[in-house]
Design a binder for these strands. Sequence first.
DNA 1: CATGAAATGAGAGTAGCTCTCAAAATAGGG
DNA 2: CCCTATTTTGAGAGCTACTCTCATTTCATG
Lengths: 213, 213
Amino acid sequence: MTSMTAARSPLSPADRPPLGLRERKKIKTREAIRAATYALIGEQGYDATTIEQIAERAEVSPSTVFRYFPTKEDIVLTDEYDPLMLEELRARPADEAWMDSVRYVMHRAMDMMTREDPEVVRTRAHLSAQVPAVRARMIESMSETGRLLRRAIAERSGLPADSLEVRVSAMSLVGGLMEANMCWAENGFRDDLRDLVDRALDVLEHGLPTENR
Amino acid sequence: MTSMTAARSPLSPADRPPLGLRERKKIKTREAIRAATYALIGEQGYDATTIEQIAERAEVSPSTVFRYFPTKEDIVLTDEYDPLMLEELRARPADEAWMDSVRYVMHRAMDMMTREDPEVVRTRAHLSAQVPAVRARMIESMSETGRLLRRAIAERSGLPADSLEVRVSAMSLVGGLMEANMCWAENGFRDDLRDLVDRALDVLEHGLPTENR
DNA sequence: CATGAAATGAGAGTAGCTCTCAAAATAGGG
DNA sequence: CCCTATTTTGAGAGCTACTCTCATTTCATG
């Protein structure tokens, strides 16, 4: 019901067998909290849902909720995709055009996500579009993603990872993708997310269409 | 000591003379709160500064502080530049290249800001770079700015203001400028902000330098 | 099974923020 | 100058996210 399971397939070494009872319980608790949160938000909305209610339904104490997630927004937003996507990006052939690499990885990621838990992806997008606090946290986490992206861009371009040029490039990429996501949610998920992402990448690559850029 | 005075010069109609005692007091209170906040943060840091302390030093009640500013972060971040810049942007000749318009307006804005209260501009940038809560709120407000920007971009490009293309374009512009600001603060204000902004705009316009984009 | 380590729960405490209501300040007209 | 309507303010209660501490429970390991 969450994304953890999906995170396994592509590029993860071997760390599955030795998984003690403790670790398994921790994962279960994490999932329980997330599931309880999504359920309650579905019933009452985000703001009306308190940590106490979440704790109650997940059958843990409020303290435990905060031990697993630093903020309420993080319960909704946390996923494990970003590092994986980064790995995949950096694993692409160095002579591939940058935007092609991005496109490729984004397509794979979206396939994976819609195959695993499309419901969660939508809820998340919906909350990001509607609830200011969630949106803020989401933007913040995207800018963290942008920071990770710098390494990949730096490797491709030969520029230093902390140069302004690389930073701007990373940030505009991340911002563009976020905008695609927002658009998707705001229009009630009517469009195909893949198309939106493609169009966003086109704008980043070539500027606005039918314009002298 | 704040930015209000600066906002007067360029494109404001006539609304100065009829300014009752009530309005004047409100402005004074607003400034007092902001001044108190900046002072206290300078002495103790952001997190250690509570609304109560701010209220005390500004000689108002805590309630009043919240009446003037919705959040603590807003006390630090709120300014009145954005709408002005938007006006100026839309007032540029329609046949000017888009990026040139942006460059022009940004230069004017930066001149204005560094002429008026360079101290506040720096403190704000510094806090945005250091304090997560402030940064989050700042990003959020930049994305509001991005929303305003859409109108201008739509007028120039002929595309609908709510199209994905325009949104991506607006967001990446705003993100790039923010990155320039961050860079500036993180490097201890050693660089010239104008150069950084120019370089950011260059990346947005032409892609990464010496690269097949 | 005993011992050490880790996870949990309970509880108190802080601070940002909201809401309500009564008191004080101001505007405008007689 | 005063009276009244409106606005602004202050006081205070209340909610909730979040932090910290400490005792208790639960798992790991020899």
